[in-house]
Amino acid sequence: MSSVLLFSILMLSLLGVALAIILYLVAQKFKVFEDPRIDQVEAVLPGANCGGCGYPGCRGFADAFVKSEDLSSFFCPVGGNDTMNAAAAVMGKTVEAKDPEVAVVRCSGSPENRKRIVKYDGASSCKIATSLYSGDTGCQFGCLGLGDCVAVCKFDAIYIDPVTLLPVVSDEKCTACGACVKACPKFIIELRKKGPKSKRIFVSCINKDKGGVARKACQLACIGCGKCVKVCPHDAITLENNLAYIDFNKCKLCRKCVEECPTSAILELNFPPCKPKVEAEAQVEKTE
């Protein structure tokens, strides 16, 4: 009885050792060298696999990052400059810092400002609604409020405001991965420079209709009057197709255009409230 047991154990052990040797030899023979730095780079990446960098997930980014000579084209919008510095340190290189960006919704057409003229009862998707018709208001450019951008956001950074029916982006959570920019069939969302303390100024409208038509559809529409272009001291504003656009690289956040805009289409975010004008002038006098 015991000899049977002993024999079995011995045979299986021998078989195991023999197979292990074969496996070891095969593994040596067909070894694929993988740069250990890929793992190291992947470890410092956020691991969100959002695709915001343009590569298929963080591993894909790390792979391309390690194999590439020039690192200037790489940027992880989720991790930002800290992550990029850490990743470059693995490679023994440095990368230039980039300004952090954030998604902005360029439409202010809440029901109060933009009357709903038809009722849509189809599938709850902006893409489908766009393929069927121009929208439930007189503005064919504006936000439909059905939330395709909310559905694609992996960071829970965007939600539809129940009162304005417009998407709201959270400055803290938004990583500027650009998923919502691609998802929006009306091209309303844009990535813009975050600015110091998240201060930013932008034209919150993409209506390219002529002034009267645009204004009839929405109270807060850009009517293409060009006042902001004239008042801007930094040449940051251009007017094309009845629509003003502020170049965020040139904008110095002076807020002159915000005051000038007759339809309040230019929005300022995260600024301290304006001091009343009289007081400001009085202060100037005092200093003189």
């Binding site: 599938a123 893409k127 489908i128 393929s131």
Partner: peptide, 12 residues
């Protein structure tokens, strides 16, 4: 279900 709506989107 809005089947056709989604199928039409897929076709596009």
């Amino acid at each position: 279900l809005p089947l056709l709506d989604y199928i039409r989107l897929g076709k596009a």
